[in-house]
Simulated scan of single mutants.
Amino acid sequence: MEKSEFFEGFEEWVKGIGRDPEHLNTPTHLIMREFLRVREQYMEFIDEYTTSLEVPVSQKSIDIWKYAIIEAIDVVMTRVVEEKSNHFNARIEEQQQTINDLSSPLIDLPEGKALLPLVGDIDSDRASAIFENTLDGCTKKRVDHLFIDLSGVYLVDTRVAQQIFQLITGLRLIGVSTTLSGIRPEIAQTAVQLGIDFGQVSITANLAQAISQQQAT
């Protein structure tokens, strides 16, 4: 059997081991320690086997056998650790996406209206998730007016302020008008420094005023 065929046969086994719940719950350094222990055992097996033969085996042959074992174990150990890491990274990304979705809920209101209450610090990743989720949600829910409440947002950077403006522009392009409420002085200052023009956006001091104003129109 060729070496390439030999290692290809390991692939599915490696994926299974790397994603196995028991191995996922085992610290990586313990998994590596076990592989190294197994490797030492195979070294001992080779020594025992060669000494048991009636015909002497050349040291070159013994070295070739041992090198093959070392290479195989090293490859498998590396792939198992990589697979475990890939699995954890995928889970972290899924959890982060869930957190982003939950942190930007689109709440249905009567008569084609909806509310997007934003709370906490908004970094670039979260701002991107809010942009995508809001546009998609408004389209699916057939929203024609969205209240965006920023009273729970205490800090945004310049890039995030720009993305909020882009969200409003994107909503306008799909036929959704917006009302911004609860803009804190820090956010207003950032918007002014960026030269962001909210002239076409309805702005109120708080959410209650925004809803009352919309009902009156």
Rank of each mutant, 00 (worst) to 15 (best):
P117Q: 09
F131C: 05
E93W: 01
N133H: 15
L116R: 00
S103P: 06
T134I: 10
S124N: 11
A129N: 08
D101I: 04
D125E: 11
L102K: 07
I107N: 05
I122P: 01
L115F: 04
L102W: 07
R91K: 15
E111Q: 13
G120T: 11
I92Y: 12
D123W: 04
D121F: 06
E93I: 12
E94L: 14
E94T: 13
D125W: 00
L102G: 03
P117C: 04
I122G: 00
L116P: 05
A127H: 07
T134F: 12
P110S: 10
P110D: 05
I122C: 01
L116D: 02
E93Y: 06
A127M: 07
S124C: 00
D121N: 12
L116T: 05
Q96G: 02
P110G: 09
D108P: 11
Q97C: 00
L106A: 07
D123V: 02
E111V: 03
Q96S: 15
P110I: 08
L109F: 11
L109M: 15
P117T: 07
R126I: 01
D125G: 00
T134D: 09
Q95Y: 10
K113M: 14
R91C: 03
I130H: 02
A127I: 04
Q97R: 15
S104C: 13
S103A: 14
P110C: 04
L118T: 07
R126K: 10
S104H: 10
S103R: 10
I92K: 14
D121I: 11
L118G: 05
D108F: 05
A127W: 06
E94S: 13
I122V: 12
D123N: 14
I92P: 00
E111T: 03
L106C: 08
L115M: 10
K113W: 00
G112D: 03
Q96K: 14
R126A: 01
L102E: 05
L116I: 09
D123K: 01
I130R: 00
I122Y: 05
L102R: 09
D121A: 14
I99S: 02
D123Q: 02
D125F: 08
R91N: 10
A129S: 15
P110T: 10
A127F: 08
A127R: 06
P105Y: 12
